[in-house]
């Protein structure tokens, strides 16, 4: 780890809504969103990852094997308010599309911002999972989101 990162390292415990928790290291270091790419993943109806594209693997810092079968909340950064994800689930479980700006936690503790869109995968009238596509957000939207999320935590 570069020396300058050591100043802003936090070891924390992240608690998830399903009662599980994990220890994580969080660094105050942003990884820039890769130009021109979309981060794509799919989950089952419980949020378990069933597909991850190469951009997702590269940006998350996990291997594809580590991601598949894991709950998508492994990407959740502690700076994100729980209410944002409650809104996401409420929207997609009702069969609608959700858009939002999300700060994601990488395996190495650094973070990256995305503009995320999640839609239900409907086959023969039944929701069988969800597709999430993330793209590069503008700095102004990141600043607005940071300010908003601070008030919601």
């Amino acid at each position: 780890m570069p020396e300058h990162d050591m100043k802003d390292v936090r070891d924390i415990v992240i608690n998830y809504h399903d009662g599980t928790s994990r220890k994580a290291t969080v660094l105050d270091r942003e990884v820039p969103y890769p130009e021109g790419k979309l981060i794509v993943s799919r989950t089952d109806t419980q949020g378990i990852i069933t597909h991850a594209n190469q951009a997702f693997v590269e940006m998350s810092g996990y291997t594809e094997e580590e991601l598949i079968g894991t709950n998508h909340y492994i990407l959740r950064h502690p700076d994100m308010p729980a209410v944002a994800f409650a809104g996401l689930w409420e929207t997609i479980e009702a069969g609608n599309k959700w858009h939002g700006y999300v700060k994601n936690l990488r395996k190495d503790g650094a973070y990256y911002w995305v503009k995320a869109t999640v839609i239900p995968n409907i086959r023969n009238g039944v929701v069988v999972g969800y597709t999430s596509v993330r793209r590069k957000p503008s700095r102004s939207k990141i600043s607005e989101s940071e300010a908003l999320y601070k008030t919601l935590r």
Binding site: L38, K97, T117, V118, I119, N121, T131, S132
Partner: peptide, 8 residues
């Protein structure tokens, strides 16, 4: 899958 992606 492709159509879902385009939808997003």
């Amino acid at each position: 899958f492709m159509i879902d992606l385009i939808d997003t």
